[in-house]
Design a protein around this nucleic acid. Sequence first.
DNA 1: CAGTGAGCGAGCTTCCGCTTGACTT
Length: 693
Amino acid sequence: MTKLVIVESPTKAKTLGNFLGKDYELAASFGHVRDLPKSKLGVDIENNFAPQYVIPTKSRKTVNSLKKLVKDSSEVILATDEDREGEAIAYHLKEILGLKGYQRIVFHEITETAIKEALKSPRQIYDSLVDAQTARRVLDRIVGYKLSPLLWKKVARGLSAGRVQSVAVRLIVEREREIQKFKAEEYWSVEALLAKTQNPNKENAQFPAFLIEKDGKKIPKLGIKTQKEAEEIVDDLKGAIFEIKTIEKKSVKRNSLPPFTTSTLQQTAGQKLRLSSQKTMSLAQNLYERGLITYHRTDSLNLSQESVESARKYIIENLGEKYWPGFSRKYKTKSKGAQEAHEAIRPSNPQNSPDKLNLEKPNARLYKLIWERFIASQMSEAILDSTNIKIQATPSSKNPADSKDYLFQATGQTLKFDGFLKIYPLIFTETDIPEVQEKEILDLIKLTPSQHFTQPPARYNEPSLIKALEQYGIGRPSTYAPTISTIQKRNYVFKDEQKRFQPSEIGMVVNDLLVEHFPKIVDIEFTAKMESDLDNIAEGKEVWQKVVGDFYQPFAETLSQKEKELSKQEIAEEKTDKICPDCGAELIIKLGRFGKFYACTNFPKCRYTESLKDNKLGIPCPKCEKGEITEKRTKRGKIFYGCNKFPKCDFALWDKPTGEKCPKCGALMIKTKRKQIKCSNPECKDNIKKVEK
DNA sequence: CAGTGAGCGAGCTTCCGCTTGACTT
């Protein structure tokens, strides 16, 4: 008879199996094994919120095989993760496997020593931690399964709301409004191109300096508002004497970055490798299953002693003694509500430098990023030499009394020691300033006034949205990527040409409804408050049913009130002065799943509809000759070009028509994603391909 | 390649968080 150890991940089970030998059988639960039913609320409100757990069909097979394994085992050891969800999984396993006796163990590193140590100190399941998870689950279910149906009734079918997704949409909507409201302000800067008098011919002895003070007063960012002001300064400085006033030199240390968590990996892979969070996770899953990296869903920055030792060895042997700081670096998690059940994301074996592995290209790129970031996290800091020079410019005024005083500043930065940047380069531009002395007089080569405008905040993209969610403690490592895909599937948001999130009409309407009528739920602080309640439950200071009840009572009241009060007409319909071309009745604007559209008030007798704001390209439809080609999106958000008379005419293309016609067959010419110009007719013999630069 | 809404009242949509394969296109 062997001892059965149950963990959450099959890969983890395989690795541990190698450490523990044949006295132990390892098995995986594949995450949660029990959940609330999908088809109904599954929470007995009348009965103190009792959850009605079921085993989803997906988990049936694993549960059955676990049951068999339990029969053949002398002991069962529940080794799920050491966090709220992991404790709950252990509890549900105990329940459905009918375990009388069991051991509960926890460990954070998948190493032989860690698992063997953990086996020496088994404990019981912490009921209060399980209670905290129950509260979390029940609360999320109530919010999601009560609010979504309200949206079906009052806005459009198939919509959804939830503690996490609704706040994500809110962030995007509010950012869009900031951008819309933003008014660009003009401002000017004055740049002086200076050179040492001794060698004015040498190009590299020139350097730029910027005006920072006038008459002893600092010029604020928008201090120079107009071209006139800037040109007055330039005029004033004609023939001025530029003299070095102060020289300040110092060394600046630049600390290495911590190893990756799920969130920072998704952000960095998004920025550096242009990968979506979904793609990053599937590549990471592959690396994890091949034993190349540690677990990829984590919010922890912990590193095992072994891995840090190995990094030290690698750094000293391959890069040199000076790249090792002389101690191992430890990093602490800053994000709210971190659960720290795992290590940070790092290479399983730091000696496996990227060039030693022969991986497929996308996997190799992600592995390289993870490996470099980890090694760099244990390296010396970089040292920058920075120089700051202040230059006084005194105009050669006829009357010294009204002579004005100007101060310019030039800054230079050079890399003295690259440290961790040797492995993990960051964007850094070196700017050199020639050696100069105090009181030295400089030649003015050129004075340039430049116009600038203040910039609106940028729309969120995947990396910045994930960063924001993590900072507010909203969502978990396992949900960032799925949340992003949910809010797109619901048509609440879509990506613009730069892959940045823009809210849709339906996204704005649903958000405004929630913000106005359910402000507590979509409050950015809601999750943080919930987390502190859950902590209290876990510490035994609160009963979970009371926490849920305190939330539920006022929520249920608001809900039934809004159910009566809100009218679908007010939310999803608008009057217009347009007339139906088919039957002559009035047209109104309605809000459907895919946004606003014109509809005939004579519906269902007259089924006339019209798109509200077509992205017409000004190209007539070659098929029906009545419609125009317009830019549209598929359900998944992919852009295509179709006739605006759809469904009467079903002409459509994936690629954007240029407006020109094929000289041979007369079909529309298109510009493909690879920027080739060709005929849209696949049978056209004269399918010329021109590459546009 | 995509189409929304109304009502008849069938059956269905929906949450967050933990984990991967498995229907076939």
